[in-house]
C-alpha cells in the first residue's frame, strides 16, 4: 500500500502527445477509477506509472510520478524495481501459456530471486489464488496449463499472479471488459477486498462499476482527435457522480458522448 502522486505527467508517442499535464493524488488503500472516452489516454497514463509506456519505441514521459515520495521516473530509479512494486492487470488476460497454473502464480515470485521451499511455494499459490477468488476452481488442476481456463478464470489468474508478489500498487486496465457479469462481479468483489492491502487504480468504461467499487474517480477527456488527453476532474466518487463541477464530466456521466 502506497501513496501515489502524479505531477504534471505528459506522455508522448514519438511526436504525438497522448496525455498532457495530469496531476493526481492517489491515497493509499483506496480504489481510484479512471474514466473517460476511448482514446483519451487512460491506458497511456496508467502505463506511465509502472514505466511500461517507455518500452514502446519512441515513447517518452515527462513530469513526476512519486511512489511514497520516491521518484519513479527519474534517472536514479530502476524500471524493473518499480514494476516489482507496481503490479498490473491487463485488459486481455495474458497468462503465460507454456506454464502451469501454479507456475503462472509463482512467475513473479521467482523473478525476485527468492528460492522457495516447495511448502512455501504451495502456500503462496494457495494464498494468491484464494485472494483472487480462483482457488476453488483450480485447486485440483494446479499443474495444468493456465491456457485451459475460461477467459474470466484466466483474468483472475493474472490477478493472482500480480498479487502473489505483494506489490504496493495494483494497476488494472479494463480488467472486466472481456468478462461476463458473473466474473465481473467476482472481480469487483475482489477489488474491494484487495483495497485493504493495496492501492488500486482501475481503468474502466463501465460507469456503474466505477460507482460501485471506487472511492475516488478521475475523469479524463480529449477535445478532439490529435489533441492530448487531459484530466478534467478528480474527486471522491460520490461527489463526482452526484455533483460534477465540469460540464464535460456532466455530459459524459449523463451518457451524452464517449
Amino acid at each position: 500500500m502506497s501513496h501515489l502522486q502524479l505531477d504534471r505527467v505528459s506522455a508522448y508517442y514519438g511526436a504525438f502527445q497522448a496525455v498532457a499535464d495530469v496531476s493526481l493524488n492517489i491515497e493509499p488503500c483506496s480504489i481510484t477509477a479512471l474514466i473517460g472516452p476511448s482514446g483519451c489516454g487512460k491506458s497511456t497514463l496508467l502505463r506511465t506509472i509502472n514505466r511500461l509506456h517507455e518500452t514502446i519505441p519512441g515513447a517518452r514521459v515527462t513530469g513526476d510520478v512519486r511512489l511514497n515520495g520516491q521518484d519513479v521516473l527519474g534517472p536514479g530509479s530502476d524500471p524493473v524495481e518499480v514494476r516489482s512494486r507496481v503490479g498490473m492487470v491487463f485488459q486481455r488476460a495474458n497468462p503465460f501459456p507454456t506454464m502451469s497454473i501454479s507456475e503462472n502464480v509463482l512467475a513473479g515470485v521467482k523473478l525476485r530471486g527468492r528460492r522457495l521451499a516447495p511448502k512455501q511455494a504451495e502456500q503462496v499459490v494457495e494464498r494468491s489464488l484464494k485472494a483472487a477468488n480462483l482457488w476453488q476452481e483450480t485447486k485440483d488442476r494446479l499443474k495444468k496449463s493456465g491456457a485451459g481456463l475460461s477467459g474470466g478464470q484466466q483474468q483472475r489468474l493474472c490477478i493472482a499472479r500480480a498479487i502473489a508478489v505483494q506489490p504496493e500498487v495494483l494497476l488494472m486496465d479494463e480488467p472486466c471488459s472481456a468478462l461476463d457479469p458473473a466474473s465481473t462481479a467476482a472481480i469487483e468483489e475482489l477489488m474491494v477486498t484487495l483495497k485493504s492491502d493495496y492501492t488500486v487504480v482501475v481503468v474502466t468504461h463501465n460507469l456503474a462499476q466505477a460507482a460501485r467499487v471506487s472511492d475516488q474517480t478521475a475523469f479524463m477527456s480529449v477535445d478532439r482527435a490529435g489533441q492530448p488527453g487531459r484530466l478534467i476532474e478528480h474527486g471522491s466518487t460520490v461527489s463526482l457522480f452526484n455533483a460534477p463541477t465540469q460540464t464535460a464530466t456532466c455530459d459524459y456521466i449523463a451518457g451524452k458522448f464517449g
Binding site: L52, V80, R83, F90, F96, A107, G108, L111, R112, C158
Partner: peptide, 9 residues
C-alpha cells in the same frame, strides 16, 4: 508486456 509488468528484466 505481462512479463515486464511483473518486474522481469
Amino acid at each position: 508486456e505481462g512479463a515486464l509488468a511483473l518486474g522481469a528484466t
